[in-house]
Amino acid sequence: MKLSGKLLVLIAVLVCIAVVSTGYAIFVTQTLQNERETGKSTTVLDDMGRIVHIGKVERIISTSPSNTEILFAIGAGHLVVGVDNYSDYPSEAVNITKVGDFISLDVERIVSLQPDVVFAYYGQKAGIERLEALGISVVTFHAETLNDIYHDIQLAGYICGKTENATNLVAQLQQRVEDIRSKTQQLNDTQHPRVYYELWNNPYMSAGPGSYINDLIRIAGGTNIAANASKDYPILSEEFILSANPDIIITSSMNIDSPEKIMQRAGWQEINAVKNHSVYMIDDNLVSRPGPRIVEGLETLAKIIHPEIFGN
């Protein structure tokens, strides 16, 4: 194969075809986009620092369970026309049309549902890009602390025209948190039981700094044995767990069926938590979803960690 004249002509033709067809594709896409542009008068700044233009808000799609919970909690549940596969709370959410999960979104279904705005979550970049390219307003939420969650509730309220509901909800949540914090703050260091939260058992994954669970344990008056780990969801060695000798072990049904499974582990019998049968199962959605129920999760943890203060 030589670099002859014929070859160059062939390559030139191919490149022309490439340029023309791509140009055509861009033209068609742009035309469609222009046809879709409608008056979008409101401007919001989302958690990713992006400026999003929104028009009327009558049809909302949520692509994250926490967003769904927030929407229902502020009284905007009737506006939700589509949710992700994992949205299961409240029970009304189960019957709403599903639009995919965090790995792949069903873009076609989302488009055909004609949403006015999509409530997305941090980490869904590809999906967000795709939807925006189709002219759909996407507001991205991202919460790492309780204050972030309060902010998100307010943001959702603002967008849906439910600011009053949102403000009230945030006030209630703050009060409930303060109820707990005011009591645990008075405890001194020795009164903080050591808590091991097990997310997964093979390998042992816990919750470390940066995770909600870590913050909640702290506010609830416990010491998370993984509080000084290197990342938010570290993998702990069995040795570390045994030597940390937690007083309380908490896990969920996502991990194992029953506390007995943990208590029967070889070599774990000497752990305080096992000796005292202080192994508890909770609904992990209460401590992993950055929505209003996180406070319920906090209350649950508080009752487990300090039953003497908060009851059982």
Binding site: S21, T22, Y24, A25, I26, V28, T29, G100, F102, I103, S104, L105, D106, V107, Y122, G123, Q124, K125, A126, G127, R130, A133, L134, S211, S230, K231, D232, Y233, I235
Partner: peptide, 28 residues
């Protein structure tokens, strides 16, 4: 390992592959 929770969606998609992100421009 270090950024698991944040990027799990993208990682999973990338290792399994799929066409759901397609649009006319990328397709052509």
């Amino acid at each position: 390992y270090t950024t698991f929770s944040k990027n799990i969606a993208t990682i999973l998609f990338w290792t399994m592959g799929g066409f759901w992100q397609a649009n006319l421009v990328s397709g052509i």
